[in-house]
Amino acid sequence: MCTYLTEKIEVTGSGKGSAGWFALSDATVYFDHPQHAQAEHTLNIDFLNPGKGPSARVAVELTAESARALARAIEATLEATPPGLI
């Protein structure tokens, strides 16, 4: 269904979109119909900078399984990073 369920967070970093790199200010995470992925619903993440317009967006659409694996990989990577680098 069209859930509109969205988690919004502020982020600091950069993303590479169709027009090259840009500074990120926000990210949204939601589970809904994908634009491109071959699944009825996917976990979608948009990395955004609304100040630069709606096209300042890096988008991914992942199956739920892939999204959970990504979340675990991110946590594992950060856990394994030597103290002092974070």
Binding site: Y4, K8, T28, D32, Q35, D46, L48, P54, S55, R57
Partner: peptide, 14 residues
């Protein structure tokens, strides 16, 4: 904006 970027923007606005 492209249709997919517009859809994301519209969604963010509810």
């Amino acid at each position: 904006a492209s249709p997919d970027d517009a859809a994301a923007a519209a969604r963010a606005k509810g």
